[in-house]
Computed example of a mutant assay.
Amino acid sequence: MRSRRRRTRAVLSVLAAAVVGVAGCDAAGGDSSAPEARRTPPAPVWDPSPGSVAAVGDSITRGFDACSVLSDCPEVSWATGSSPEVDSLAVRLLGRAKAAERSWNYAVTGARMADLPGQMARAAARRPELVAVMVGANDACRASVSAMTPVADFRAGFEDAMRTLRKALPKSQVYVASIPDLKRLWSQGRTNPLGKQVWKLGVCPSMLGDADALDAAAVQRRDAVERRVAQYNAVLREVCARDRRCRSDGGAVHAFRFGTEQLSHWDWFHPSVDGQARLAEIAYRTVTAEER
Score class of each variant (00 low, 15 high):
G63T: 01
V151I: 06
C240Y: 01
G195K: 13
R39C: 12
L263D: 07
Q173G: 09
G57E: 06
E291S: 10
V203R: 15
N138D: 12
A255V: 06
L70R: 12
R242I: 13
E85L: 06
D267L: 03
K167E: 11
G189D: 04
V174P: 04
M207H: 05
V174R: 03
G136M: 07
P41R: 05
L93V: 11
D31L: 11
W78R: 13
G259D: 10
A241H: 09
S83V: 03
S32E: 08
V76E: 02
A16T: 07
R228G: 06
G81C: 07
L185C: 09
R242S: 08
A147S: 14
V198M: 12
W78Y: 12
M1A: 11
W46H: 03
V69H: 10
G24M: 07
H265I: 15
A143T: 01
W266S: 13
N105H: 12
G136T: 12
T61G: 12
Q119W: 07
R285M: 07
P180G: 14
R92P: 03
V239K: 01
S77I: 04
R38Q: 08
V56I: 05
E85P: 15
V176Q: 15
D215G: 03
Q188S: 08
A34R: 15
G250Q: 03
R222K: 05
A34K: 13
G209F: 02
V174T: 09
P150G: 02
A177N: 11
E290V: 07
E75Q: 08
S172D: 11
M134K: 13
L130A: 05
A280K: 00
V11A: 14
L70W: 13
E238I: 14
A152D: 07
R127P: 12
D47V: 06
P193T: 13
P117G: 11
V253D: 01
Y106S: 09
G29T: 00
V76C: 02
D215F: 06
V203I: 10
A55Y: 04
V56N: 05
A18Y: 05
E36W: 13
A79F: 04
R184V: 09
V19A: 10
V20N: 08
D160G: 15
V131A: 10
A124W: 08
A23C: 09
A79P: 00
R38N: 05
R222P: 00
R126A: 13
R190T: 08
A140T: 05
G51E: 11
A123L: 12
F256N: 04
A54Q: 01
D243P: 01
L94M: 07
S13D: 04
V133A: 10
V76W: 03
V91L: 11
G110W: 10
W199M: 03
